[in-house]
Amino acid sequence: MCRNIKTLFNFEPPATEIEIRDASLQFVRKLSGFSVPSKANEEAFERAVEAVAASARTLIASLVTTAPPHNREVEAAKARARSAARFG
């Protein structure tokens, strides 16, 4: 899986539309192999991003959990610590 795609479910505050679209864009880029599509593929690429974003919104809204929401700042600090341990 693409390392740039972040978990969006069960966070406080909830994922924003921008975060959902960014994750969808990364997913479509990974599937297509294009970071920027050609003019000929641009429309299909954008349709795919919108379709993935719609599916992601539906999924996030449908999921349930009993776990308390994660704090974005705490999770970001954990990620920085893992990165520092890994890369020095």
Score class of each variant (00 low, 15 high):
45 F>D: 04
25 L>K: 01
43 E>G: 03
42 E>F: 12
38 S>D: 03
28 V>S: 02
53 A>E: 01
31 L>N: 00
35 S>P: 07
44 A>R: 11
63 L>C: 00
64 V>Q: 11
23 A>Q: 07
53 A>L: 02
77 A>K: 11
82 R>T: 15
82 R>V: 15
20 I>W: 00
47 R>A: 06
60 I>M: 09
33 G>A: 06
88 G>C: 10
65 T>E: 00
44 A>E: 07
9 F>V: 04
17 E>D: 12
8 L>W: 02
29 R>E: 00
49 V>N: 05
39 K>N: 12
58 T>W: 13
35 S>W: 12
56 A>V: 12
35 S>T: 14
55 S>G: 15
84 A>C: 07
4 N>Y: 09
37 P>H: 02
76 A>T: 09
59 L>F: 11
54 A>E: 08
57 R>T: 02
46 E>V: 04
86 R>G: 13
74 V>W: 04
48 A>S: 08
83 S>F: 15
41 N>H: 11
68 P>T: 13
67 A>C: 10
41 N>Y: 12
50 E>L: 09
87 F>L: 15
34 F>H: 12
20 I>A: 05
62 S>P: 00
60 I>H: 03
43 E>F: 11
20 I>T: 00
78 K>F: 15
48 A>Q: 10
77 A>P: 02
25 L>E: 10
27 F>T: 02
33 G>I: 04
28 V>D: 00
86 R>Q: 14
19 E>G: 03
50 E>V: 07
21 R>L: 05
74 V>E: 09
27 F>D: 09
52 V>I: 03
75 E>G: 09
50 E>T: 10
15 A>H: 02
62 S>E: 08
26 Q>R: 08
14 P>F: 10
88 G>F: 13
62 S>H: 05
27 F>I: 06
84 A>V: 15
60 I>N: 00
42 E>L: 15
15 A>I: 01
68 P>R: 13
59 L>K: 08
78 K>R: 14
4 N>D: 13
81 A>P: 04
51 A>M: 07
84 A>K: 12
68 P>W: 09
38 S>R: 09
86 R>N: 13
49 V>S: 04
51 A>H: 13
55 S>L: 15
31 L>W: 05
17 E>K: 10
84 A>F: 12
88 G>T: 08
53 A>Y: 00
52 V>K: 03
36 V>R: 12
49 V>P: 04
21 R>Y: 07
56 A>D: 03
13 P>F: 00
76 A>W: 07
76 A>G: 08
9 F>I: 02
39 K>F: 14
12 E>G: 01
